[in-house]
Design a protein around this nucleic acid. Structure first.
Lengths: 283, 283
DNA sequence: ACTTGAAATGAAATTTAATTTCATAAAATT
DNA sequence: AATTTTATGAAATTAAATTTCATTTCAAGT
């Protein structure tokens, strides 16, 4: 039985020269990157010459580096869930390598929501939002992006929805809440003071508080009426906020699509009208 | 929905020119051969020019013929009936089912950027942004979310960066541009009038225009100095904007991470200080 | 029917990427 | 210690991809 390319490289490691070992190590640790690399790039990364890369491909039985890349690409396509820890950024990564890692990390984060989000909590959230008189979204920093996106989408759906970064302005809004209203608190940590204050004030007024927050025992997580849990994605501190925003946005998307699906016929005319205006702004 | 490469070619056959049809026919009938062919070989077999082969790869959304071959090789390796039309939302879908579809669609969209984004364009974009005196991000509607996110991230990196939804306000800002500045235009369609106007004005002032726009022949795509191409993701009109926003945000993330990686040591103190303040806002 | 502009197209030029060649250093053998 | 073989990287060459430019074709307007 023919083993895979990577397996073949692995089992012949002890036979390799020092230079071949350097190339092998890089390939085994960065397999996904190889199909889009040039000989020069791989040579630089492995700290060998381009000629050595060409020789290596021949040594392991592939006629050319070009073919080596094609074969490896095919093998990786088949191999499910090939997980390498991309989160540790290396100083000498090129922009394209970092881009590939970002793609990987973002895909993984979105996938992980499947593990953290509770079906019933989502159903309940959709039900409350659908029937809400007024909706307020609130998040700060990176989470404000998701709040902004929600504002945009729920406005399109015809809801009385609001989001404003000005905490004091929000302090004037929330007291007018009642039991028909919904406050959506967005906070990765679940410990952001302004978000917590507004959530608690909303509850005092009888509104439902939906939290989009990481699945852990934060104050917001504990106190919210409905918890739409985002996964705890342990990342390098430099990119941690990227993945949480992706997961928050995916949840916002899901709420939007669910409600659209439920009430869509009622707003199709207005919805189409808005789209027509958008098209008019194009060339 | 992200269909397979071959499915995509097949369903667009009627839109193709005579030459494109010749190339398509050969590819569809000899798919397994393509990954190991050169542009010259395919051109000869399809009775077209090599330039037409290159163009064809771009027309169907792949940035280069090289990448086209890799993608096709991977697709042929998997060869599962991977095609499900997730975009047709069914009325009786539960919120959780819709959530699963959103997760799938978003992951696919992010994956597809690997096919559309050009490595060199990304390198150039990082270089210009890194050395920019002033950066303006601009997008409207759904694309404003990405602009907002970019504003937040590049502010953290210590850049003089700006984004404002007020087009007239922007009209007052852009005339102060010079050749050391960068204008980042974010528009899925590449035809949004306000975005185009500001991009052209920026170029007149000698600034570099980086476009984050779909890989197609839009005015913005043609006129930009650097094109960070997002994939053409054919979606149900109700959710089309979701995927483009995800792809735009992933590109913003990649730019941010690349620049952080490059200049990070210079801003680590300020960066940590900002984080400390964020932590202080938590309980 | 004619004109004009846009789009399509292929040939040729240019650039990029892969491979080979050549010289040198290191390792192995005698 | 000397010689031969192997490994290796820099540079040159070749192959492949992409871009540029000129021409042809097509579509729209008059």
């Amino acid at each position: 039985m023919a083993t895979t390319l990577l397996a073949r490289i692995n089992e012949r490691l002890h036979q390799f020269s020092k230079t071949e070992k350097k190339i092998s190590a890089y390939i085994l640790n960065h397999a996904e990157l190889i199909p889009n690399m040039t000989t020069k790039e791989l040579a630089n990364k492995a700290d060998v010459s381009e000629a050595s890369v060409i020789r290596f491909a021949k040594t392991i039985g592939i006629g050319s580096f070009k073919t080596f890349k094609i074969s490896l690409a095919q093998e990786l396509a088949v191999k499910e869930g090939y997980i390498t820890d991309f989160s540790i950024l290396q100083k000498k990564d090129s922009p394209y390598e970092m881009f590939q890692k970002v793609v990987h990390v973002n895909k993984n984060a979105i996938e992980l929501i499947m593990e953290s989000l509770d079906k019933k909590e989502l159903d309940d959230a959709v039900t409350y939002l659908k029937n809400a008189r007024k909706i307020i979204f609130y998040g700060v920093g990176g989470s404000s992006i998701a709040a902004m996106d929600a504002l945009y989408k729920f406005t399109k759906l015809g809801y009385q929805v609001e989001f404003n970064l000005d905490f004091h302005y929000m302090l004037s809004k929330v007291p007018h809440f009642n039991s028909e209203d919904v406050f959506v608190a967005i906070s990765m940590s679940g410990r952001t003071k302004d978000v917590l204050d507004l959530a608690r004030l909303s509850q005092k007024k009888g509104a439902k508080v939906i939290a989009i927050t990481n699945i852990n025992k934060s104050p917001l997580y504990k106190e919210a009426d409905i918890r739409l849990a985002t996964p705890n994605v342990e990342q390098d501190f430099r990119i941690g906020s990227i993945t949480s925003r992706m997961t928050q946005l995916t949840i916002i998307d899901s709420l939007y699509i669910s409600i659209f699906n439920s009430i869509g016929e009622n707003v199709l005319d207005e919805y189409q009208e808005a789209r027509d205006h958008v098209v008019k702004l194009r060339r």
